[in-house]
């Protein structure tokens, strides 16, 4: 589930929790990617998202660890709700 928790934060919930790895998770929305994150709860990963105005509705949203394309976790497509 993807929801806006704050004007510049996206909280990603996962029932299975989020992997913790040597390399960081990176949130990709379309051709933009966001690195600043916190594990705000056992199953929640919150990214700080800036340049909101540049996000495009319908952009693919996924979390990727480091440069590894095979690690991608695909999320719902973005609906611009803010």
């Amino acid at each position: 589930m993807l929801k806006a928790a704050a004007p510049h934060a996206l909280v990603l919930d996962s029932d299975a929790g989020w992997l913790v790895r040597a390399v960081d998770p990176v949130l990709h929305i379309g051709d933009m990617h966001f690195h600043s994150y916190e594990h705000t709860g056992r199953r929640t990963l919150q990214f700080v998202v800036d340049k909101v105005s540049r996000l495009k509705p319908g952009a693919a949203v996924y979390v990727q660890y480091g440069e590894e394309e095979r690690s991608r976790i695909h999320l719902v497509k973005l609906e611009k709700t803010w």
Partner: peptide, 8 residues
């Protein structure tokens, strides 16, 4: 529990 998780 062998499964660890993160809470900042």
């Amino acid at each position: 529990d062998p499964f660890d998780y993160c809470v900042t």
